[in-house]
Simulated scan of single mutants.
Amino acid sequence: MTTATVAAPPASAGATRASSPYRLSFAHLVHAEWIKLTSLRSTWWSIGLVAVVSIGLSLLMAASFASFGGDMPAMSAEEANRQAVQVVVFSTVLTQLLAMILGAITVTGEYSTGMIRSTLTAAPGRIAALFAKALVLAVTMFVTGIVVFAVAALVSGPLMPTGALDLSLPDSSIMPLLGAALYLALIAVMGVGIGFIIRNGPGALAAGIGLVFVAPILVLFFPQFETFQWIHDAASYLPSNAGQSLFMGAPMTGTALETLPAILTLVAWTVVAVAGGIAVLKTRDA
């Protein structure tokens, strides 16, 4: 007597993926990017350097104001807040470069070591991996900025002849500091986009630093003649100038933008960088 054996039909690929306990979700990608970011010594060195430079420059500038003593003109509470904010966020002239560098090297470092192949194998759709990396960098830089600015405000406030920040006027105290932290976060995301576009460490750093630091300085070489006025007008929409309009009220070059146009300008630059990174990531092999 024989027993017939009936083979079970093979499970579909979709059913296998749905029942697998190891399905890689976006939250898992974010967690993986967080581990990669925090396990690098360069991350902590960069964050530490941002803190030291920011707090040190704030103390130096506050001491400079203190040296004027009674020679400082009388100010309203809002004017005193604006001066205190400038002391706290003055360091962004340099720390924006560190944000750009950190964003770029988290991408180009993976290309140089070959780890990007493992990343894209785990996330074959590719775009989710880019968004996860950008999200982790943005949150890290935003939180770092808030903490560093808070410490800088605490240590520089007692030195200011006009007094520390008056938090009862949030429009001239809290909001500019949040704007500066947002700026650093968006600059880091731009670095991620540029990193995916260029894929080469020195090249990405040169492009990023040229955009946020060198380009506004180059505008200074054009005289304020009618022939070159369009250059000065366009300079207002460079990332660093828009950022300085947002949290300092006055850019290095160009004219100051209102809050909403400044934010939209920064978001537009970030979207362009990320869109370029997506286009290259989807069309070129790792």
Rank of each mutant, 00 (worst) to 15 (best):
M252K: 07
L98T: 12
T106R: 10
Q229G: 07
L137P: 03
I231Y: 09
I231D: 05
A180G: 11
T3F: 03
A77C: 07
M175T: 15
V192P: 00
A51E: 04
F247D: 05
E258F: 13
F68I: 10
T227E: 09
Q96F: 04
I105E: 07
A138V: 03
I127A: 15
S76M: 05
I127S: 15
A15W: 15
F213Q: 06
V267F: 05
P176R: 10
F228Q: 02
P216C: 10
A138L: 04
A104M: 10
V214S: 06
H31C: 00
T95M: 01
A279T: 04
P261H: 11
F247Y: 15
A132G: 13
G157E: 06
A286G: 12
G125F: 03
S39H: 10
V219R: 05
I116K: 03
T16M: 13
M115Y: 14
F196V: 02
S19Y: 14
Q224F: 00
Q83Y: 07
G163N: 12
L159R: 10
Q224D: 12
M141W: 06
A262K: 07
E110T: 01
D71R: 12
S67R: 10
V52F: 15
M160T: 10
G208D: 00
I174H: 07
E226H: 02
A206I: 13
E79R: 12
S173Q: 10
R126P: 07
I47V: 14
M190I: 07
T140W: 00
T270Y: 00
V85R: 04
V139S: 06
D71C: 04
I146V: 15
P216G: 09
S118P: 08
E258C: 08
F65K: 06
P251K: 09
A181T: 09
A153V: 08
T253W: 02
I194K: 03
A207R: 01
H232I: 00
Y183N: 05
F196T: 01
Q244A: 10
A279C: 02
E33N: 13
V30W: 03
P223V: 05
L257E: 14
T283L: 12
P202Q: 10
A152V: 09
L264T: 06
A4P: 00
L97Q: 05
T38M: 11
A268H: 02
V272P: 02
A128I: 04
S58T: 10
G210S: 03
W45Q: 01
S58N: 04
L49K: 01
I146E: 09
I55F: 06
M175R: 14
L266I: 10
P239R: 08
M160D: 11
T119I: 06
F221I: 12
S46F: 03
G249Q: 11
A279D: 01
A150G: 14
S12C: 04
A250L: 14
L59A: 13
A153I: 05
M72T: 08
A206C: 09
M100S: 01
V6I: 15
G14H: 08
V53H: 07
A13C: 04
T144F: 08
L135P: 02
A104W: 08
I47R: 00
R41Y: 15
A250T: 14
F142D: 02
T38E: 03
G191S: 06
I127G: 08
T259E: 15
A7H: 15
W269M: 01
L154S: 09
V274R: 01
L178I: 15
V52Y: 13
P10G: 08
Y237W: 15
A128T: 07
T119W: 04
S12R: 10
G145Q: 09
T106Y: 11
